[in-house]
Amino acid sequence: MNILVCISQVPDTTTKVKFTDNNTRLDTTGIQWVINPWDELSLTRALELKDDASSGVAKVSVALVGPVSTEPTIRKALAIGADDAYRVDTEALDAYQVAAQLAEVVKAGSFDIILCGIESSDYNGSNVGGMLAEFLNYPSVSGISHLEVQDGQVQVNREIDGGREMLVLPTPFVGIVQKGIAREPRIAAMRGIMMARKKTIQLVDAARVEPLTRTLAYEPPQPRPACKFIDPDNPEQLIALLQNEAKVI
């Protein structure tokens, strides 16, 4: 059984984002790029399954849609333990383009489980996984917080209103992953970093797909007014403010 983890690179989550070119583009100066947090957790879980001989998972690959500048991020995934990687050589403009490219990678390969993070922490679209599944006509389950594979049998938990649902799934399928799938992301060890240099990143030509959307401009959120401090010995004042000023209780 083979797992493909779709990854993207995002600014480190502590980055103070700034924009350039009349606020139409992210200012990438000084940005530290990392694997999107949910993709990283998906990869960690895939590798945990591969380490467990009873799972039947033989190989873990990663795929990324992006220009050559994204290769350090792919190397990071290989250093953590992915066996090989695919990079579709194009700068995609929206989720539709990304998913269409990933669909070609999946069709050309032989994967049983395809994992995508529930969203990327930069564009917050939550679209690539579901779009990929529809392009492939595969079933998809969104909001997966647990993934178990035993002798090729796949079981997932997904969050539903007020609780969780445990599902048994046939392969192939697209799993759209949220927090909980793995505890801590795996960190690359020196040996992994050395080995990653020898692993292959297969270059894939981009398919011709037009984007469906275009980002016109970004704007920072409205600044919040300064905090009103209340004497800890006078919580009555806080209650009065919430009742009469904010009118929320």
Binding site: P11, T13, K16, V17, F19, L26, S121, D122, Y123, N124, P211, L212, T213, R214, T215, L216, A217, Y218, E219, P220, P221
Partner: peptide
């Protein structure tokens, strides 16, 4: 966008 650090004006084509 950017996890609440920005709003994006998006054109749906």
């Amino acid at each position: 966008a950017f996890s609440g650090n920005a709003q994006a004006g998006l054109e749906l084509k």
